[in-house]
């Protein structure tokens, strides 16, 4: 009997940090936010309960346009991260030798040791009007006047891909690593050429990793704030910026909270569609890697 109680107690103790984390930092704040988002301000310090904040969002084109723009750019970033990350992951998992593999993986990780902010400023140093790229192009005589590379969509996308690509590479490496080399050889042996083996064997096998990488990358990108603001400036029109504005600049917490939930619902919807289209489930992808 005693033994059983101790066992149960240790189980509770082990579970406690996780439960506290989930309730205190995830569930409670979200409940609070949801409560705030449902309050309509009718007069100073007078509130009514209703969907007004959400309705406002859909009535103002600038809001949902920003959301769609954020969503489509995040999708583009995800696709680019996949296209760039897959060959890197394949090289690390299948082609590189055991020793180079560790070194390469480490090299992918090193940028993470520097904070997001510093890395964004690094990009600014390179890309601004008086920055390294512009001045070296001038020095080489390729351009006459300095060029501002910052504050456009392409820069934002490059910066975002750079920030998130690691989260694509890691799940891809772990799935590709689990693939028996003989399977690729069997693909060739049975008559497949390079593209066929890639399309019919390697990609289907890596699908769980691809989907889980895409989910993480899409979530991170759509919810990122620092990189779009610093590299895109005021015209980046990122949806997180709208949320920030509502909370801080306009001190309209009700509407900010509603925007937050709209973003959550939107990204969840995109991921759900992605899972349906790829025929995967959350269980088979994110939970596995």
């Amino acid at each position: 009997m005693m033994q059983k109680d101790i066992k149960r107690l240790s189980l509770y103790l082990l579970f406690a940090p996780f439960a506290m984390w989930i309730t205190l930092l995830i569930i409670l704040p979200h409940l609070g936010m949801f409560y705030i988002s449902m309050r309509e301000k009718v007069a100073p310090r007078v509130y009514e309960f209703g969907f007004d904040n959400y309705i406002n969002f859909f009535n103002e084109p600038i809001y949902w346009n920003t959301l769609l723009r954020t969503g489509s750019m995040s999708l583009l970033v995800t696709v680019l991260a996949l296209l760039l990350g897959f060959p890197i992951a394949y090289y690390i998992a299948k082609i590189a030798g055991n020793r180079t593999r560790g070194a390469l993986f480490l090299m992918c990780l090193i940028p993470l040791w520097v904070s997001d902010l510093i890395r964004a400023f690094g990009w600014i140093l390179l890309l601004r009007e008086t920055g390294i790229i512009s001045s070296s192009l001038q020095w080489a005589g390729l351009i006459n006047t300095p060029i501002e590379f910052l504050y456009n969509d392409a820069t934002v996308i490059v910066g975002l891909v750079y920030t998130v690509i690691l989260f694509m590479i890691v799940p891809l490496v772990s799935t590709l690593d689990g693939m028996d080399d003989a399977m690729i050889e069997a693909g060739y042996n049975l008559g497949g050429n390079g593209p066929t083996v890639l399309r019919r064997i390697i990609i289907p096998y890596a699908m769980p990793g691809i989907v889980s990488g895409c989910i993480v990358v899409f979530m991170l990108t759509a919810g990122s704030y620092l990189t779009p603001i610093l590299l895109g400036g005021k015209n980046s029109s990122w949806f997180t910026e709208q949320i920030y504005d509502q909370f801080i600049t306009r001190y309209n917490w009700e509407s900010g909270a509603a925007f937050g939930f709209v973003l959550l619902a939107f990204t969840s919807l995109v991921i759900w569609i992605g899972l349906k289209l790829s025929g995967q489930t959350l269980n088979s992808t994110v939970a596995r890697s």
Binding site: A182, M183, A186, G187, Y188, N189, P204, Y205
Partner: peptide, 17 residues
């Protein structure tokens, strides 16, 4: 190349897809 040879192989761990 291996995919053009009419030699097929049963792998040690079979390598079924």
């Amino acid at each position: 190349p291996p995919n053009r040879r009419n030699v097929k192989m049963v792998f040690q761990h079979l390598a079924l897809f």
